[in-house]
Amino acid sequence: MKFRIIGLVVALLLVLLSAHPVKAKDVVMSGAERSDYFTQALSLALSYAPEKQYQIKFINFDVPKLRALKLIANHEGIDVIPAGATVERQELVNPIRLPLLKGLFGWRVPLILEKNKDMFFQKQTDVEFKQHIAGQLYTWSDTKILESNGIKVLKGSKFLGLFTMLEKERFDYFPRSMLEVEGEYHRFKHHGIIIEPNIILHYPTAYYFYVSKQNVELHNDIRNGLELAIDDGRLNTLFKQHFGDIITRINLKNRRLIELNNPFLPPDVPLNRKELWLDVEQYIDNNVN
């Protein structure tokens, strides 16, 4: 009789559970759009926890990155954001330490004036290269990185103004990431600007997903999902779909690599995991300055 009652209780619980399916969990994202790489990477990562029924939602207004990070930290309407790796951000919110862009933001291609297209044609010594002046916004972390490597930087206060300053030859070149340079060239080529064809600068950078330090479950699900997607190749396939053509068009193998240090990179960035980064040997020769 006792076991019969237990069996009936179990059956009743199963009926109740089937009548009340698990409620989907909304994950509110900032700093991305519905169809972009970051959204698809997050969706891929969360797909490895199907029992949670995660659904990605978006805020319908622009939020500055620092403000979004503070909202995440305080559980005020945003759950996750993709952003560059900095010590300051890691003190505020919790990073998933898997570089989403394989370091692409640290691969910098100069925009220059067409009339100066041969500026970097001849191989130059470090000293000679550093005589050229780069242009950057004074608030950008890249500005500090370039200056820490002994590169002269002319700083502006407005992004659009930098293209006018380049046109007027206030500085010599405007280093932009591989993800930005083509779009900006097409937008501003009427200024007589071209993509410099001979060199590429590189310094290590990482782009992470960040969540609240208290949201351990979401942090673990994103991290575990990304690790699984790395292992089975699906994240790399997604990366190539979005950025493979860009990397090919930049023509790395015919560019001279100028390797720079990044003293501001957090010390826990997983630089030793080669599978997480752009495979340089696949694209570039050994002509390193």
Rank of each mutant, 00 (worst) to 15 (best):
F3L: 15
F3W: 15
V10F: 12
L13Q: 14
A19D: 01
H20S: 14
S30R: 13
G31R: 03
E33H: 13
D36M: 03
F38P: 05
L46P: 00
Q53I: 04
Y54F: 09
Y54H: 00
I56W: 08
I56Q: 04
F58P: 10
L66H: 14
R67L: 15
K70F: 12
L71H: 01
E76H: 15
G77E: 11
D79H: 11
A83G: 04
G84C: 01
A85E: 00
Q90T: 10
Q90C: 12
P99E: 04
P99M: 05
L101F: 09
K102N: 07
L104K: 00
F105T: 01
E114T: 02
E114N: 08
K115V: 07
K117P: 02
F121W: 13
K123S: 10
D126H: 08
D126T: 12
Q136C: 10
I151V: 15
K155S: 12
S157D: 13
K158A: 14
F163Q: 08
F174C: 07
S177Y: 05
V181A: 02
V181F: 00
G192K: 04
I200N: 04
Y203C: 01
F209S: 06
N215Q: 11
R223S: 12
L226D: 03
A229R: 03
N236S: 10
L238K: 06
Q241N: 14
F243P: 01
N251V: 01
R256G: 07
P263C: 08
L271W: 06
R273D: 14
W277I: 10
I284S: 03
V288I: 12
